[in-house]
Design a protein around this nucleic acid. Structure first.
Lengths: 343, 343
DNA sequence: CTCATAAATTGGAACGATCCACAAACATTG
DNA sequence: CAATGTTTGTGGATCGTTCCAATTTATGAG
């Protein structure tokens, strides 16, 4: 196997110096058009491949960033990753992607590995048990960091998330408007900031309507389908059942609907169910899930933009963007005076 | 901001030479335990970050590979990516991930970018219109390549895929066993190898049962929900409707079920529907979708293993793995003598 | 045609690691 | 204790690029 082709080979073939080749590579200008063309021709002929590792050794301004996602198998986060990637590639930046699967250990490994590869910044969708100090330490070392979706208690870094409180409040007002009074909240773990915010939104709306919340109607559970199933089942075992539930997210909501069906209850008619996130599954389940859309693709793009800005400015200034959360009414809340979505 | 800390700084702090530091870094052995510990302590104290770019300049054995996925928003491919990633990280290899969104241009860009970053190999889930020559060119340059899920006509590289033909045949036999005779095939574009294989499986099973296939019952359409919706609608407009359809994949099947429902027909009772891939959505739609499982996570792991083997051996030997496809019977094919899945 | 200036090009020194051939320190043995 | 072998440890060259200061070449004004 022949040696790798380097700029020196190109320089030789094109009859110029390696510096000139470097100039046309970096597009700095200052090189005559015909010389540049000759160089490019030589690169084509020899099958030259630019070595970014070598380049960033000398010039550490990096065109690579890391995106660390806690659960890629969740379409919500996959959509987020796609939004981030779209924006980054548009800006000529190459994203390293890693999936932590909610493991704090893997998150640490992955972040280290990205630093070793010279990532110029990191977009982090943190695991539920992330430590603010660790993230601050990372940012303190001069690494631009943007948290996405989930805030981390104590972390003083930039954040892109949705207005969970307002979204949950809107969902709750919708249920109140339909006549529901016994409204529960299920799914998510209490240490999750996102859950705290969404629960707070529900409580706020109940309070505003003068309804006294029943603490027994909110159940903690892993943010999975099984979690939703179990939590809903537990609530149904109680003497005083809820007539409606706001769920931590769509996955939990789907699990909850399954639990209802299993008991011969009709989601929407017997117990109203609202999800959160508006993943594509929400449209496809039956009955179609009323949910709160957070515009996840857009959030991803914003996170990417924010990171790029942060890298460009170099001033570790902390920014926060809270995206609007919009209620999407479908069929899972039974008869309604609002207009149903025309799918 | 202070200069980056390098092995020379570590060497100085630990009172050894940079060569020794390099030795403990690469774990080559030949260094006294206490010296190694002193070096490691210095690294901790100074907050040292290994510079892989510099390392792979001198020693090009790369610990990075690229994974190029055609559509991450499809949970099927997301699951594939997760399987690949799991195996690679287990082997200490860092995957670069990129999403091409079915764009051939982006695929080319992304592959180039990965080569520039020194990827030691690439797992490619090719766009539908990929050119075998281009892929052969890549492999010919000494880059280990493994195609996943989709074969590319003319490409002479390793492949990990599922037995689409057998899977489709099994699904068709299931429908035949339920008494269906007018069995259609919908979704996918005719240039897709995967579609050709699945369609061939259907035809094969029909022929084996002595049923003459009606060409008018197979409809081409983009492999999306809308594609499935439109294709199913078109078939329903025909005088002689199918009583059952095998769909290109689960997404198409869900679209087809939507089309049925829209016309007041009950999927499963009026027209049987079978999907392909067994994504998580298949379990959650109603009626739950009978589909063909290809074990996508496992396929991802196999692809990763195959690439690692190929990188290790260095011999561009071409391997092929065809995973088994298993019929999963649920509720979308109406009354059945087979035992329903106990969800 | 000459000189000043601008534009284009160039060689050599980095960047931060690994590799190699060799040297120093230590152990073993007759 | 000399001779020999075995661990450990070391300086310098090197990988492919960018940066810098310096040099050559082209352009324009008088």
């Amino acid at each position: 196997m022949s040696r790798r082709v380097t700029i020196v080979d190109i320089a030789h073939a094109a009859g110029v110096s390696k510096s000139t080749v470097s100039l046309v590579l970096t597009g700095g200008g200052k090189v005559k058009a015909e010389t540049a063309e000759a160089v490019r021709a030589a690169m084509r002929d020899l099958g030259y491949v630019y070595n970014r590792g070598a380049a960033s050794l000398r010039n550490p301004r990096s065109r690579v960033v890391g995106m660390v996602i806690n659960d890629l198998s969740n379409p919500f986060f996959a959509e987020l990753a796609i939004g981030i990637e779209r924006m980054l590639r548009g800006a000529g930046v190459v994203p390293f992607l890693a999936n932590t699967g909610e493991s704090l250990l893997r998150q640490a490994e992955v972040v280290r590995s990205m630093r070793e590869h010279g990532a110029g910044g990191i977009i982090l969708c943190p695991t539920a048990d992330s430590d603010g100090r660790e993230i601050n330490a990372l940012a303190g070392l001069g690494m631009p960091v943007v948290l996405a979706i989930r805030r981390v208690p104590g972390a003083k870094v930039s954040l892109v998330a949705s207005d969970n409180r307002a979204g949950a409040a809107a969902a709750t007002r919708h249920l109140l408007g339909l006549g529901h009074r016994r409204i529960g909240f299920i799914g998510g773990l209490s240490r999750m900031g996102v859950r705290q915010d969404r629960l707070a939104g529900v409580m706020e709306a109940l309070a505003a309507a003068g309804v006294t919340p029943d603490r027994a109607l909110s159940a903690e559970a892993p943010p999975t389908k099984d979690g939703g199933f179990d939590a809903m089942s537990a609530l149904l075992d109680r003497a005083e059942r809820p007539t409606a539930v706001v769920c931590f997210n769509d996955v939990v909501a789907i699990g909850a609907m399954l639990a209802l069906t299993r008991r011969g209850l009709a989601p929407g008619d017997d117990v109203a169910v609202v999800g959160f996130d508006d993943t594509s599954e929400a449209r496809h389940v039956s009955p179609a899930l009323t949910t709160v859309s957070v515009g996840v693709g857009d959030l991803g793009e914003r996170a990417a933009q924010m990171l790029l800005r942060q890298i460009a400015s170099g001033s570790g200034a902390v920014e926060t963007y809270i995206g609007e959360a919009r209620l999407v009414v479908r069929q899972s809340c039974g008869p309604s005076r609002t207009i149903r979505e025309v799918a």
